[in-house]
């Protein structure tokens, strides 16, 4: 039996993130975390934990950077 599929997925452009962590504060399922490696701007960016995303999109709207977060949703199977 396959693992339950997440309904969503988040991609974070680590170099565009300014580490404000607003996405973490709004994420209802706590699937985002601060990373430990400084990005090229000198911030500690946030990244997707890799699972658990529901594709709700709250992190996207809370994020002030236009292109830092892309939210994906699971394609309804044909």
């Amino acid at each position: 039996m396959a693992e339950r599929q997440d309904r969503g997925r988040v991609e974070i452009n680590l170099d565009e993130c300014k580490g404000c962590q607003l996405c973490i504060t709004v994420c209802p399922v706590n699937c985002l975390e601060v990373t430990t490696k400084l990005n090229k701007q000198g911030y500690l960016p946030v990244d997707y934990k890799g699972s658990g995303c529901t594709g709700c999109g709250l992190c996207y709207y809370a994020c002030p950077e236009p292109g830092a977060i892309t939210v994906f949703r699971l394609k309804k199977s044909a």
Binding site: Q5, D6, G8, T70, V71, K75
Partner: peptide, 11 residues
Amino acid sequence: APVYEPYLRKP
């Protein structure tokens, strides 16, 4: 494998 499509991206 599950297929994800962009839902919210940079406008």
